[in-house]
Nucleic acid binder design. Structure first.
Lengths: 211, 211
DNA sequence: TATTATAAGTGACAACGTGTCACATAGCAA
DNA sequence: TTGCTATGTGACACGTTGTCACTTATAATA
């Protein structure tokens, strides 16, 4: 977390610092980026930097939090639009989310983030989700409440939450793979939908009875 | 790839260097590890190091390749044992593989590898690995040939290959998650089997017709 | 206005890590 | 002995990090 000192800064100076950092992080991974470059980009002194942030990571996570798309609303809306259908809801959500990431003006930043971070991203996504689960959506509704459960082999709400989480990590993994393999937006979307299809309907032919 | 000079070294010296590197990489990530420590551990001079390896990464990937379990045979055997059954074969394979990783004397090294693995490292290591060894199984047998296809919704062999690969990445992701959530071996295995079940049979109740 | 307390800004600096290079040494064949 | 090749070495230049004693700005108060 940035210090209070950082938040007290003038908007102009804050923007300068953020822009300088984004420039660095858009072409380099967290590990390759250097504070020296960032403070040079932003024309602030090295000493000042350490009055705002603990270290490079601190700044980086702040930026991720700042620019991360609030996927919860997108997800919620997607499921509402598709009347709670698991497959269609996720398809809608995933395709839109991929589009957002790939067409974002922060493209370079996101690309680097996905290519170089796995553990942290998953952890962040999970924490985010847990927060959303504990708290309540702005409208007072939760994502798990707008997913039609009667067409799913789900016994407990806990299991649904666990599936919903898993699909999020599948989406993130697919986006990552798309960046690495330099897939087009459409190819990345198709890859996600294919995996979603597997998970929704299974790769095995239907049994007489469900397991 | 290490240089010929490295391979020409006496077994004793090679072992000393590998041990020194494993010590460092068992407690630190690739980024946090330092060549300075490794050469100090192995009591070789800094200059020598650079005659054997291009850089830290070069050594790291060499070690991954050296100690990586040759999962192909384990996978092949598992499917043969389970008579080509997709679910049972993967269950058998995944459980054994997880056990191997977690009970390995190289535990610390693997733990660190999984915890700090990102997509780029993963893929680079894979490229290194493919380069070092032939792509074909020693016996000339392919895994896709021992998976019973008639119980799968598979049209082309390409699709099967793509599913098989995906399941491998699901397994790796699950192992990673197990490490950072500090799950027990059994919990990690159960998590993998649950996901395998989803992917095999789907989370949706069986349709009258498959899609 | 002068005084004072608090907040913010600064860059030199020590510590540490990297990759290189000119040079040293060992092994061996002619 | 001479020469050739392979291997070993550590000082060095360069870059990065986090700190710290010190300076400057801001604003409240006498």
């Amino acid at each position: 977390m940035p210090t209070q000192t950082f938040f007290n800064l003038s908007e102009e100076k804050k923007k300068r610092l953020i822009a300088g950092a984004m420039k660095e992080f858009s072409t380099k991974s967290l590990n390759d980026a250097s504070i020296s470059n960032i403070v040079k980009n932003a024309t602030i002194s090295r000493g000042s930097f350490y009055q705002y942030f603990e270290d490079k990571k601190d700044l980086y996570f702040y930026l991720i939090g700042k620019f991360r798309y609030n996927y919860r609303k997108l997800m919620y809306d997607s499921f509402v639009k598709e009347e709670g259908d698991f497959f269609k809801g996720y398809k809608n959500f995933g395709e839109k989310y991929i589009l957002y990431i790939r067409q974002s003006p922060k493209f370079g930043f996101f690309e680097n983030m996905y290519l170089h971070m796995n553990y942290q991203i998953n952890q962040e996504a999970r924490l985010d989700f847990d927060k959303a689960k504990g708290k309540v959506m702005p409208e007072g509704k939760r994502i798990v409440d707008v997913i039609k459960r009667d067409s799913l082999k789900i016994n407990t709400e806990e299991e649904l939450v666990s599936i919903v989480r898993y699909l999020l990590s599948v989406l993130n993994d697919t986006i990552m793979e798309g960046f690495w393999k330099e897939l087009s937006i459409e190819e990345t979307q198709q890859l996600f939908v294919k995996r979603l299809e597997w998970i929704t309907y299974g790769v095995a032919v239907s049994q007489k009875e469900e397991d």
